[in-house]
């Protein structure tokens, strides 16, 4: 005798079973559809194919390796404010730095400056020991000061960039800072700031023309 309870248990169980089957139909269909047919390949053909493949692999590896600079190069992560100094495929140093603050300074609709570190591949264009900072217009605008003439003495500041600077072009520099407590934070006007020790290491490691990747 099948009672009403038995009946509902059977129906529920059947529904669950149907759903389990249906749920597995798609993976089953995928499994069946992807069963691949392998042509019969003789051992000698297989060996020849493997030999050709390995040779091609070596050639492609060589082409890829040709892109890795032989000497030192620098990678800057502007999101987490870190730099990675490499020599070939080996990372030599990883530490904090400071990059652009992403502040858009607006004096008027026409006069505005975006303080961000540019992304892309750059090269060291120039290296300077004991650099002097020639303050651009925005440095005065930012502080609410009147902008002086192009070569006015107030534009020149000594010692604020640290002992060395490396130019990436378009006014962007890798330099030191007096505000070491801000290292690791996005506070610069687009330049890359390092602490004294790292600046010296980078300055001495990267000759002119070395690559700098910023992302």
């Amino acid at each position: 005798m099948i009672t009403k309870v038995h009946k509902s248990v059977w129906i529920s169980a059947s529904v669950v079973a149907v759903f389990v089957v249906l749920f597995n139909l798609q993976p089953l269909a995928i499994a069946l559809a992807t069963i691949s047919w392998s042509p019969g390949v003789s051992d000698s053909t297989l060996m020849a194919l493997e030999h050709t493949g390995q040779k091609e692999l070596k050639e492609l590896d060589q082409k890829l390796r040709a892109n890795v600079p032989k000497g030192h190069y620098l990678v800057v992560n502007s999101t987490v404010n870190e730099f990675y100094l490499y020599k070939g495929e080996q990372m030599v140093k990883k530490d904090i730095c400071s990059t652009g603050s992403y502040v858009l300074l607006k004096k008027s609709e026409k006069e505005k400056w975006m303080f961000k570190t540019p992304k892309g591949e750059f090269r060291i264009r120039n290296k300077t020991k004991d650099p002097v900072w020639k303050k651009p217009d925005w440095a005065f605008v930012e502080e609410g000061l009147p902008v002086p003439s192009a070569n006015h003495p107030s534009r020149f500041e000594y010692g604020v960039l640290g002992d060395y600077s490396l130019s990436l072009g378009d006014g962007y520099l890798i330099h030191g800072t007096l505000f070491q407590r801000f290292l690791g934070l996005p506070v610069t006007h687009g330049c890359i700031r390092l602490d004294d020790e790292n600046l010296e290491l980078v300055y001495k490691s990267l000759p002119m023309g070395s690559k700098v990747f910023i992302f």
Partner: peptide, 23 residues
Amino acid sequence: VIEKVAPKTQEEFLASVTSPDSL
């Protein structure tokens, strides 16, 4: 991007100086 209007005087600049936000 954080938009900032340039201060008109140095007093205005000093009043608007803040420490950078931690990330």
